[in-house]
Structure formats: C-alpha cells, structure tokens
C-alpha cells in the first residue's frame, strides 16, 4: 500500500459509513462496550433520510415513542450518543476500503483516512448525491460548464448563467451569483417555488427590475462546442426558446446511490449487502452492514430492525477490537455503564 506523503491516518475502533438513525445508534451500543466511533456521511449534517427526506413527518413505529418527527428522532439519538463523543466526517463519501494488516482503512472523498478493526456500513438507501441533468451531452460538460454545486463563487463572475430548479439551493445561488454574473436566467418547471418565500420575493424583485430573467419551462437540450456550453433550449407552454449561456447550474435535489461501496468486494443481493443474522457481518471479516442497506432472510427495512442489528453487530466488533468476549450488562443496573453515560 502506498501513502500520499503527509497523509494522517486516524485510528479508531469502529468506522461507520452513514450517519443516519442506525449509524448513530451504533455509536451508543459501541460506546457501552468502550469502542470509539468515527462516522462518515455524504450530507453536511447527521440524520440521513430522517432529516433529508422527512424531517417534519411523523414516525409512529419507534418502540416506546408513540410519535416523533424524523428530526426529533435524530436529535434524541444524537443526545443519547453524546457521552461517547462520536467523531463526524461530514460532506464526504467513503470511497475506498483497503486491508491494513489486521485492520481496515477507509479513505473518503475529502482525503480523510480512518483505520479500525471494524467497518460498519449503515448507509441506508445509499449516499445522497445531486440529481443529474438527464440530457444527451450532460456528462461531458459536468465540472466544466455544467455544475451541481458551487465550489468557488468567483468562477462564475462575468458569465452568462442559467440556474435550474425551484428549491432553496436554486434560489440561494440565484441571489448570490446575480450581482456578479453578466446575465442570469432562472429556469423552473412552474411559476411556484418550494424555496423560502423571502428568497422567492427577492428574486421576483430582481426580475421586475430587469436585473435577471425568469423562464418557466423545462431544459430540453444542451448546445455545446466540445466541453464548452453555448446555450440551452427551454421548452415552455409557449414553445421552445434558446438561451445563450456559459454555464448551467442545476439544482434538482438529491437522490440516493449505492456509490463506491458497490466496489468494496462485498456480496450483494439486489444492490443490498448480504449479512448473517448473528453478527451482521458481510463476506469480509470485520466489515458489517446494518439498517436498510443490509439483507438477510426475513429482513424488514424498519428503523427498529436497524437498532437490533447495531446491538448484535457490536458484540462481534468488540471481539475484533479487544480480542475477547464482551461482558453483558444492563444500563439500568450497571454502575460501570452509569459512569460511561455520566448518570
């Protein structure tokens, strides 16, 4: 194995891929067994689908919690895990899994390198990635004149920009880039926006003042010279029009993809990771899968099933971390556990 010079390897007991409800609960179970956890997530905050897809929607099937929202569940799970000081590595995707002697090494898209005897994949439906423009030629333009995120605002100064979408990302970047763009056109499917009303109001004032354009319709074609975008076609109720532009920024929301995990040498069944039901271990020793991403006979994609899988997985992970069997204790009665929990 070769290493980039200056790479810092962070040692830990458990690398958890995915900071959704099940990944966070695994921190708690691992913590009771003295294991330190590091979590990796593509999103910029913990919570996974609970906070990304349904933060305000009610969940009714968490044992002992008759009803709570996705956000409340995550807030409570984070509070429960807090005594064990989990380390979060956010806005990065777990890219590579490599053996490092008896341990595993995981490298993320941000260059973070973690090493541990245990890797736990709690990646739910996969990592959240931006939805791509489904038009011919889009792939060749990506990163050159078609963007799904803004890295450096200055790159767009003095350019003719088309921004597509109707959510907060589309509106926020419209307002941020409009002052420096040569011309900015916002393209959206309908004349209603799911973005914050305040941003929509500001955008409409700019349109009224003639400082930018709003076009209602769907981008129907990309016109490019090699990797340089020249124009987009927009199809609306009044027919198709061509908008000359230097760059297209598309904010169509996020979708879930299995991503690099698919190439980690794990046995997959219908894009889910096959595990046993004693240790929730994959075909690779010390690599586990729990929650929605794992499969076994009788598997149900329920948060409560993921919690159970986390607890059992930790028993085996402990053996790999400390070379002995864990002692079984109840949080209600164990003074040792009380000390760990700070109660």
């Amino acid at each position: 194995m070769h290493e980039e010079p200056g790479t810092t390897v962070h040692d830990t007991d458990m690398i958890i891929v995915g900071a959704g409800p099940v990944g966070i609960f695994a921190v708690f179970e691992a913590g009771l067994l003295n294991m330190q956890c590091d979590l990796i997530d593509a999103l910029d905050r913990p919570g996974g689908q609970c906070t990304e897809l349904y933060p305000d929607k009610p969940i009714y099937d968490i044992p002992g919690v008759p009803v709570c929202t996705g956000q409340a569940l995550i807030d409570n799970l984070l509070k429960q895990a807090e005594p064990f000081s989990p380390r979060f590595h956010l806005s990065q995707v777990a890219e590579r899994l490599e053996a490092d002697g008896e341990r595993w090494r995981v490298t993320t898209s941000a260059g973070t390198v973690l090493r541990a005897p245990n890797v736990v994949i709690a990646a739910g439906g996969g990592s959240f990635v931006p939805k791509k423009v489904p038009l011919p030629g889009a792939e060749a333009l990506e990163g050159r004149s078609l963007f799904y995120a803004v890295r450096r605002q200055a790159d767009f100064a003095g350019k003719r920009l088309v921004i597509a979408g109707g959510g907060d990302s589309a509106l926020d970047w419209t307002l941020a880039l409009q002052p420096q763009a040569e011309r900015l056109t916002l393209v959206h499917r309908r004349d209603a926006f799911r973005a914050a009303p305040d941003s929509v109001e500001k955008m409409r004032r700019l349109v009224e003042a003639g400082a930018m354009d709003l076009v209602i319709g769907q981008i129907s074609a990309l016109h490019a010279d090699g990797t340089r975008l020249e124009a987009v076609s927009v199809r609306g109720s009044d027919g198709e029009r061509r908008i000359e532009c230097d760059a297209l920024l598309a904010f169509y929301g996020l979708t879930m993809k299995l991503g690099p995990i698919a190439d980690w040498g794990l046995e997959l069944k219908n894009n889910l990771i096959a595990v046993d039901t004693e240790k929730f271990e994959t075909n690779r020793r010390g690599v586990f899968a729990i929650g929605d991403i794992c499969t076994y006979p009788g598997k149900l994609k329920l948060i409560l099933s993921g919690f159970h899988e986390a607890a059992l997985m930790c028993q085996q992970a402990y053996r790999y971390a400390f070379g002995k069997d864990p002692a079984f204790r109840y949080t209600t009665s164990s003074s040792e556990l009380h000390k760990k929990l700070g109660v």
């Binding site: 939805k131 489904p134 959510g167 309908r190 209603a192 799911r194 169509y252 929301g253």
Partner: peptide, 10 residues
Amino acid sequence: EDILDMTAEP
C-alpha cells in the same frame, strides 16, 4: 408539486 420539481423529466 414540490417533489415533481425534482423529477428528471416532468
């Protein structure tokens, strides 16, 4: 409607 905004080809 908000979610239909995010479909690939509405």
